[in-house]
Design a protein around this nucleic acid. Sequence first.
DNA 1: GTCTATATACGGATAGAC
DNA 2: GTCTATCCGTATATAGAC
Lengths: 189, 189
Amino acid sequence: MSNKCELLRQRIVASADQLFYQQGYENTSFSDIANEVNISRGNFYYHFKSKDDILNAVIDKRLGDIENTLHEWEKNSPDPKKRILSYINMLHQNKESITKHGCPVGVMCTELNKINHLMHSDATRLHVLFKNWLSKQFKDLGHKKDAQNLAMHLLSRAQGIASITSAFEDKSFLKREIKTLTDWLENIS
Amino acid sequence: MSNKCELLRQRIVASADQLFYQQGYENTSFSDIANEVNISRGNFYYHFKSKDDILNAVIDKRLGDIENTLHEWEKNSPDPKKRILSYINMLHQNKESITKHGCPVGVMCTELNKINHLMHSDATRLHVLFKNWLSKQFKDLGHKKDAQNLAMHLLSRAQGIASITSAFEDKSFLKREIKTLTDWLENIS
DNA sequence: GTCTATATACGGATAGAC
DNA sequence: GTCTATCCGTATATAGAC
């Protein structure tokens, strides 16, 4: 059945997604994914034509996941300030994985920048989704001219927090910084 | 002569330092370094016992380089605020390399977190050097209680700026954020 | 000390049986 | 569709000549 085939494909992508996040793309082998999914190495090439092809599928999955999250945040509140708070609070919700592995988007951009210049721009599209959405919220908040800059600024703050939290393995730092960010949001509102 | 030997060793470490920064540690092979230094692959093992050993030497070199930079900044000004500005302005001075490859410290921490848990803490020591030095400056500025937190905050801001600048390859963002950071420093002084 | 040659391991990718 | 067996390239690391 093609349905069963599609399901296996999704399981492969989901496992690859996790492993790429935890171990990095280059450092994750077909054997690693195969162990996770319980299939043979050779079987991969029925579903994907290369490792880059899996990376592509993982990025597409992440793009979809992010869009779903953004729609969720929009559904939960019509207030742009509260929507931006949803973004900031994501740091707290993911504090365990951030402490261990950093921000999935930032980490992937950094790695692809080193090893695969072609797909670096694809990974940056993950950032762009958040940027455009945040930009829209800041506009709705009344920041007509500098909405884009504020979005980039917030993106940057979140990246820095994830990076330092992971390097120092310091969850209390992450909590302090979330407070600082919410104060900042309050001040510009 | 042992002097000649020591010089070659330093050239190897300097080249490895550059390549690890530009391409990443895992993605840099002995051949890459050998081409740069013009020696044979086998010759490495006279000077280093493994690739990890080179990584160790690179981290030691970076620790020394950072200490020299901090001493330089101290020598250039007795004013703690100006000293902190030296740190912020480093972002501007290195804008070309940051746009291409990100922050050397952050990028290395991220990579070692994925592939080599043992040396991850060594890379974090690079962060700690800056953190302790900044902390001292904030103390001298009158922030007795929260000097440490302010230092971590500034570290985090710089990491975020480097990360986003590199992902978006956007030097104008970097310049805007430097202005934002100097304003922040002015406000807390 | 520096070289060449080589051992060894591993990862991505292919071929072909079932 | 999934498997096993295998090819091929590359990387670290070692051995030994010079």
